[in-house]
Amino acid sequence: MNNILNLKNKTVLVTGASDGVGESVCKLISNLGARVIMVARREEKLRDIYKMLDGDGHACYSFDLSNIDEIELLVKKIVSENGKLDGIVHCAGVAVARPLRQMKYQVIHELMLVNFYSYFELVRVFSKKCNNNGSGSIVVMSSVSARSGDKAQSAYAASKAAIEGSVNVLAKELADKNIRINAITAGMIKTRMFENFLNRYDENSIEQLYNKQYLGVIDKENIAYAVAYLLSDASKFITGTGLVIDGGYLT
């Protein structure tokens, strides 16, 4: 039987490829036949993961996504060296925990650069005819915080709500170009970001969080499965939505 999640001959750009969810996505989609273009800042980590990928034709680019003005040049370089793209997965992201009284515009701005502006710029550039193969799928990591964030997460929650708000509009704008776009609205996932998050809380608060996500903390591979599905033609009728994978958090 044909594998319905086949990604053969698809070239997919993954941001945040050096860690966490992005790393898992790269490994899984390479196994499903995709050529993976990895983007993150830490070059050594990218190289280590690159060596673990299945198949060939993959590439890594060390790049700081907060340099929004240079994203178009980066994508041009990627396309000239690897051919046009079929998909983008935006896993690069940062989290900030700051109560309102200590919030600073600069902190919000730096977070928005990576979480939202870089994603938006990547989508804009990808949607140009010269950069895609006449169709495509975009997947972007959102969070349950977009819908029900906890105290001190206002900036992070806003960045994710911005993503979800844009996804359903862009889906309509991109439909004529045969490009689908979806977010994954994730609950807590076992990654470095999550460990850093736990470091800031005492046992009581952590216990409360665990109670909310009653199916447990999500393994990053389980997010990668959904990303592969959204990239594949198996999901060709899904666009403009936030797929909730939250271990029960929002219910």
Binding site: A97, Q102, K151, A152, N199, R200, Y201, D202
Partner: peptide
């Protein structure tokens, strides 16, 4: 409370460039 503990982490980072953790706060 848990919010003031978070605030303390931010204060230590902003004013003293120290990375305070929940364990140390305890």
């Amino acid at each position: 409370d848990s919010m003031s503990k978070l605030s303390l982490i931010v204060l230590m980072s902003d004013e003293f460039e120290k990375k305070l953790t929940g364990d140390t706060i305890m």
